[in-house]
């Protein structure tokens, strides 16, 4: 029983990383209409920034984290401006934007490999949080706590932003129709930039916590996140922050329990099997509405 509880906790911690990434990825998909293959590289670059600042500059972990998140966010804004805006302006649909995102992905991945020299490192243990403590009779790593806090902050924060503020309303409106948003007196360019920034920043945060939890940072860090985050978004039902969070946590728990009780080699099988099953039999996901499916079509 204790093992089960402990593994569920571990699963939630793992899943929270997927969930945070998925929220950013889903934001881009649902409001900007981009199935962004390059989103994982935003996470990678966030983690690489922190790696550089902590290990080479000697900055503290927390200020480095803030800067890393900013770098990812700004990167997403630039990418959106260069690669996605021209296509959106032309009224193109998912396909051309997906292809340009593949171009961006190749570019940023290659750049990441160049700067890291394809080596794997970790945040300096002196600076980064480490160790564990007792939590209701279970062991909780400090790094796990960071990712759980991250999902709480991102999940609640973004959901509140989208549903309780004017900017959030405008962001959702942009997702449904850029025209409608501009009619409502909102500057669509600004709203798109804010959305891109948030979606990239959140991905960066996920990448940083991923590097923290696995003690490995390399140029491929974001790629696993991309696939798992994609699964979280689809399973949760995209266009819905809560759904994505639940989807991510569910995947994390499912993976850890499968590894514990069935076989470590079937971890990915569970996640991607669930992904395919949802796409085929319940495309709107756990929480998505039929309306949110319209967004991507537009």
């Amino acid at each position: 029983m204790d093992v089960l509880a402990q593994q569920i906790l571990n699963g939630l911690a793992l899943g929270s990383v997927y969930a945070v990434f998925g929220v950013g990825f889903g934001l881009m998909l649902a409001t900007l209409g981009v199935l962004n293959a390059a989103h994982g590289t935003f996470a990678t670059w966030g983690a690489l920034t922190v790696l550089y600042l902590v290990n080479d500059v000697g900055l503290g972990f927390w200020p480095a984290l803030v800067l890393g998140v900013l770098v990812s966010g700004v990167m997403a804004v630039i990418v959106d401006f260069v690669a996605f805006q021209p296509i959106r302006r032309r009224g193109g649909d998912l396909l051309p934007a997906l292809i340009t995102s593949i171009g961006v992905w190749i570019f940023l991945l290659a750049a990441a490999r160049m700067v890291t020299g394809a080596t794997t490192s970790r945040y300096s243990p002196d600076a980064a949080p480490s160790g564990s403590f007792d939590f209701l009779g279970l062991t909780l790593g400090r790094t796990q706590l960071v990712s759980l806090l991250a999902v709480a902050v991102v999940g609640v924060g973004l959901h509140t932003l989208l549903h309780r503020t004017r900017v959030g309303a405008a962001m959702r409106a942009v997702g449904h129709s850029p025209m409608a948003a501009s009619l409502g007196g909102v500057n669509p360019v600004l709203v798109v930039a804010v959305t891109a920034f948030l979606s990239g920043a959140v991905a960066g945060l996920a990448g940083i916590t991923m590097g923290l939890n696995t003690s490995t940072v390399n140029f491929m860090l974001g790629e696993a996140l991309l696939l798992k985050g994609f699964a979280a978004v689809i399973i949760g039902g995209f266009g819905d922050v809560r759904g994505t969070v639940v989807g991510g946590l569910l995947i994390g728990v499912a993976e850890v329990l499968t590894a514990q009780y069935v076989s470590g080699s079937l971890r990915d099988a569970v996640t991607f099997g669930l992904l395919l099953a949802f796409l085929v039999f319940r495309p709107r996901g756990l929480f998505g509405s039929a309306a949110s499916m319209q967004t991507v079509r537009a």
């Binding site: 396909l95 079937l266 990915d268 992904l275 395919l276 796409l279 085929v280 079509r297």
Partner: peptide
């Protein structure tokens, strides 16, 4: 797959590729 609406179909083929690797591994 073909009964899916086009974008879901596209994403489902991505999922299929992900699963392919799992199948190859096992």
């Amino acid at each position: 797959l073909l009964k899916l609406e086009s974008h879901w179909m596209a994403m489902a083929t991505v999922a299929l590729v992900l699963i392919t690797r799992v199948v190859v591994l096992s």
